[in-house]
Design a protein around this nucleic acid. Structure first.
Lengths: 193, 193
DNA sequence: GCGACATCTTAAACTACCTTAAGACCATTT
DNA sequence: AAATGGTCTTAAGGTAGTTTAAGATGTCGC
């Protein structure tokens, strides 16, 4: 039963009855993804919401100079997707790439709407999930406008130790908003002090 | 009827019946706020969710060096509040200060829970509102890690022309994550080119 | 009309971060 | 065994942003 981690996740918010569990198992589809494979590419419309069962992803934007900037990582029990594109049905500016061989559960927009209409409880669960994501995003904004790169790096290591062990420094630098070279000098200063 | 702008706002998402409108008018309380008065101060628990009828606010954090960093502004028809503290009932790290003499509508946590339970439609409205806020926050994160201060300033002016005319450059600099002095040199360079 | 106070600007010295380029160290592929 | 490509590091010179201090302007209470 591949949907077990997802049902467990939902039940951390609200308990589900058998009918709801069955519906979740029915509308979320398993998908296996190779390393370097994309769930979403710039220009496409995001048609699915994705929950990670196993593996690791990054979501990034490419700027005018062709440089990549990581907005988010996702590992086991995290959600990933371009909410804006998913809702507005406009082409996405983001890319979602598997950093490791992965297994995910995906729900389509139509099924998610059915989920909300037929089982209103999920409106509430998704509202709380989104609120939590917003709080994290606000934390990161404040950190970006108030901290040095060194402070941001230390906070990242402390806050996401599991990410830190799985993700290359190139990707972490891109998440923190510095060049890999500068992250390297930060790490050196920290290790020799 | 002071709640009209709020009901109009809700109805941009979903139409309300008379009962729902009456409940909204009942649970949202009008509050008048002087310039420089606070809706929330660091260390307090956020007990209300606030919708601005008239006036202007800023929400900011104070860092270890005593410097203020603006997370958000809010004018007519915007929401403002520390969602994290409101939900977790933990002391807030944020301050919300009136930049202008203002009028707001506030709902308590208990009433908001009643709203969600008795009129489930609002779960959906608030979910969508929160999703939109999250998309904006993500945009800002990407901009912070990928753009120069000049680009961020130009984007701010274009995106929020009404803010731009009402808010001092000191406050805008604090929102953009630069010193007021540097914002001044940015503005000079832009005006002489 | 004066004093007190906030806002905005300018400039010089300083620090954080970037660019470019190169070399070392892997893990894969051929 | 050699070639390839990704990761991490080091270093030198450049640009973006900060700090401090000072002066100009404007606004408000009295």
């Amino acid at each position: 039963m591949t949907t077990k981690p997802l049902i467990d996740y939902f039940e951390e918010h609200l308990l589900l009855d058998e009918q709801e569990k069955a519906f979740v198992a029915h509308v979320f589809k398993v998908r296996r993804v190779k390393r370097r494979q994309y769930l979403l590419q710039e220009g496409e419309i995001s048609r699915h919401n994705t929950f990670v069962i196993e593996g690791c992803f990054r979501m990034y934007m490419v700027d005018q100079n062709g440089k990549e900037h990581n907005l988010q990582f996702a590992i086991e029990n995290w959600w990933i997707g371009d909410i804006g594109s998913f809702h507005s049905e406009q082409p996405s500016l983001l890319n979602i790439e598997a950093i490791e061989k992965s297994i995910v559960l995906q729900i389509s927009k139509e099924d998610q709407l059915r989920l909300f209409v037929e089982y209103p409880k999920f409106n509430r669960i998704f509202r709380v999930m989104t609120e939590n994501a917003l709080v994290s995003a606000q934390r990161r904004i404040l950190q970006n406008i108030s901290s040095t790169a060194t402070e941001r790096y230390l906070d990242f290591v402390e806050r996401y130790p599991h990410f830190f062990n799985r993700i290359s420094n190139v990707q972490i630098a891109s998440y923190l908003g510095v060049t890999p070279e500068f992250l390297s000098t930060i790490r050196k200063k920290l290790s020799t002090s």
